[in-house]
Design a protein around this nucleic acid. Structure first.
Ligand SMILES: [Mg+2]
Length: 237
DNA sequence: GCGACAG
DNA sequence: ATCTTGTCGC
């Protein structure tokens, strides 16, 4: 279709003009990811999410103490939306605002959980991988639905999981975080492996399907959005 | 040409 | 993701 606005990637590549270059860039960056076990147990686990308001993106982050589940800090940032909504490129829309939020934190998270995939992506470079690579912070992709890959429905009990395969590789795990609810799609983003990702997601799961850190960030995202609606200085109204 | 398709 | 109140099922 046609675009009335100039959409750009954080690397000044324009859509749809530079479509091929953008795809090459995702593939190139994915090769720089490190999918390996976490060195030491995390102390701080963060959850991130984003919301949209007009042509603005609100990124939010909630940090918890991994062992106790205590909320210790939150932050957010607002950015301009610079990329259209197309499957495979979510990172270009949410990434900037999420990165901005994490950079405003006083504490540096040991691992970050995302509302979107890591390497379970067409080019092996989903939202969690993108942010995890740019910030050099271990990241976990925890998508609500499938982007790529095939799998067998996991068992009905909480904690059940099955492999998510794509192009012959086991890129993720389909995890039943809550009984009676649809499973979640876990895949490592950067600086962590699949096993460690699943362990952390389950450890951060409370009574809901979505991980507590991400739920918290999602809640913050909406509170902020509500507070910003009708705010001329933010560009809407 | 017809589906699939993160949030 | 977003637009939105009540309503069906466990
Ligand atoms: Mg989200």
């Amino acid at each position: 279709m046609k675009y009335d606005k100039v959409y750009t990637t954080p690397l000044n590549l324009r859509w749809p003009r530079d479509k091929e270059k953008i795809l090459e860039e995702q593939a190139r960056l994915s090769r720089r990811l490190s999918i390996a076990p976490l060195k030491r147990a995390p102390q701080y686990v963060a959850g991130v999410d984003a919301a949209f308001l007009g042509d603005k993106v609100i990124g939010a982050v909630s940090v918890y103490i991994y062992e106790t589940g205590e909320l210790v800090e939150e932050a957010y940032s607002v950015k301009e939306v610079t990329f259209p909504n197309l499957p495979g490129f979510l990172a270009f829309r949410e990434g900037p605002a999420i990165i901005g939020a994490v950079e405003r934190l006083k504490v540096v998270p040991d691992v970050i959980i995302f509302d979107g995939p890591g390497i379970a992506h067409p080019k092996g470079f989903g939202l969690a991988s993108y942010v995890g690579l740019l910030l050099t912070i271990p990241s976990i992709g925890c998508a609500k639905t499938r982007l790529v890959g095939t799998y067998k429905e996991p068992g009905a009990r909480q904690g059940s999981h099955s492999a998510l395969k794509y192009e012959g590789e086991s890129v993720g795990s389909v995890v039943r975080t809550r009984e009676g609810a649809s499973p979640v799609f876990v895949s490592p983003g950067n600086l962590i492996d699949l096993k460690g990702s699943v362990d952390i997601v389950l450890k951060c799961t409370g009574k809901y399907r979505i991980t507590e850190p991400v739920r918290s960030a999602d809640a913050l995202t909406r509170k902020l959005k509500k507070a910003f609606e009708g705010d001329r200085s933010l560009g809407n109204a």
